[in-house]
Amino acid sequence: MDVDAYAYAQRRSWDRLAELSGRGRLSGAEADELVTLYRRASQQLARLQSHSPDPELVGGLSALLARARARILRGRIDAWREVGRFWTERFPAELYRARGWWAGVGAAFLTVATGLAVWVANSTDARHLLGLHDDNGDLTGPGGAFETYYSEHPHGAFAAHVWTNNAWVSALALFLGILLLPAVSVLFMNALNVGVSAGLMADAGRLDAFFGFILPHGMLELTAVFVAGGAGLKLGWTLVDPGRQSRGRALARQGRATATIALGLVGVLLVSGLIEGFVTPSGWPTVVRIGIGALAELAFLGYVFVLGGRAARAHDDAGRTVGAESEQSATTRSAG
């Protein structure tokens, strides 16, 4: 075995291993490359130890492998840091970028629900058309089904139930968005349910009870549904109009953003489920229950527009800087 020739042939991969081992942050592809180069260099070290009398070469490669091993282990520890980055950067940034879509969905949803509520409250024909009975006291009266729905089950079990149900509705709105019309149908049916309930409670003169039970959890819950619907429709529209990118590349990019939003909404819906399970039926004064819901909603909006806006702008600025440097480098090479 010609050790010098062997070492010369492997020098480029060893230099690359040294470069990746010294970097502060690696992309997913770079992390995979680091592990691959580490394994290959370990095999090469074993071969050199069997054939090479050069302790300097063996010692240098051993030291390189030690640094690479430490970098790999640190990368595993950094997984928790990545979890932190998801909640402080990636998720809020994607919410911020999709803000126009989910704000539009929210405005349309509330317009439809309000229109249906006014129609149902003021028109007997509307109630008949929707298959509703003239006497809805069992639903709208004091102690009726609308109120007991929030207290007929243990708080913990009820919170888990609504969390699962709301996650399912949001998932449908998100992932049916690529088909556009099914997502619109899911959103419309939810607007119909809210509008009909509000209309019946208004007809019974109990609109105050409706808002007292809906608003504490409903502000955050419905916002999460709006986000899911908006992100889903944005994904579907990417299929129709991919912009300057190829359709496949645009869908892949938006699909990753949609998956990020889907994962983050699990946490948002958990918070709204806890409010619905423990605060809404608590018996506390209405102003207190609505105040807790309002604080949760304001915290979410601040999370999106402050933290998310900052993260999105920082990422976009970094992208423009890299693009400008790449363009300048290409111009320099052309001039050379």
Rank of each mutant, 00 (worst) to 15 (best):
G302Q: 06
H51V: 12
F210A: 06
G28W: 10
I261G: 07
G205N: 02
L95P: 02
A157L: 14
A250L: 01
V268L: 10
G291D: 01
T321K: 14
Y8K: 14
V266T: 10
H217T: 01
T88H: 12
R23H: 13
G273Y: 03
A157H: 10
I290Q: 04
G323E: 09
R127K: 05
R71Y: 06
A262Q: 04
V225N: 12
L270S: 07
R320M: 14
G283M: 08
D15G: 15
E30V: 01
E89C: 08
R23Q: 15
W87N: 08
Y96A: 08
A113L: 04
F213Q: 04
L222K: 05
T148N: 12
V162I: 12
I292D: 04
S123W: 03
W168A: 14
I178Q: 07
H133A: 15
A173R: 02
G273S: 05
F158K: 03
R289S: 04
R90I: 09
V240T: 05
T238I: 04
M189C: 08
R310S: 13
E30M: 03
A173H: 02
W119K: 00
G336F: 13
S123D: 06
F146L: 06
E221C: 03
R320K: 14
Y6R: 13
R74D: 15
I178T: 04
W163E: 00
W101F: 05
S326E: 14
A231G: 09
A159Y: 01
R310F: 11
Y150R: 03
G308C: 02
E276M: 01
A311P: 04
S151M: 09
A224R: 02
E221S: 03
V83I: 11
A224Y: 03
W119D: 00
R74T: 14
A5T: 11
G195K: 01
R333Q: 11
V306Q: 11
L73D: 14
F86T: 00
W119Q: 05
M189P: 07
D78H: 06
W80R: 14
G195H: 00
G230F: 00
R244C: 08
P182Y: 07
M1L: 10
R76Y: 15
G232D: 04
G156W: 11
V268F: 06
L174H: 06
D32G: 11
R256Y: 11
A231N: 00
F158W: 06
R320T: 14
L20F: 07
V271W: 00
Q254A: 09
D15M: 08
Q49A: 13
V288P: 01
E152K: 14
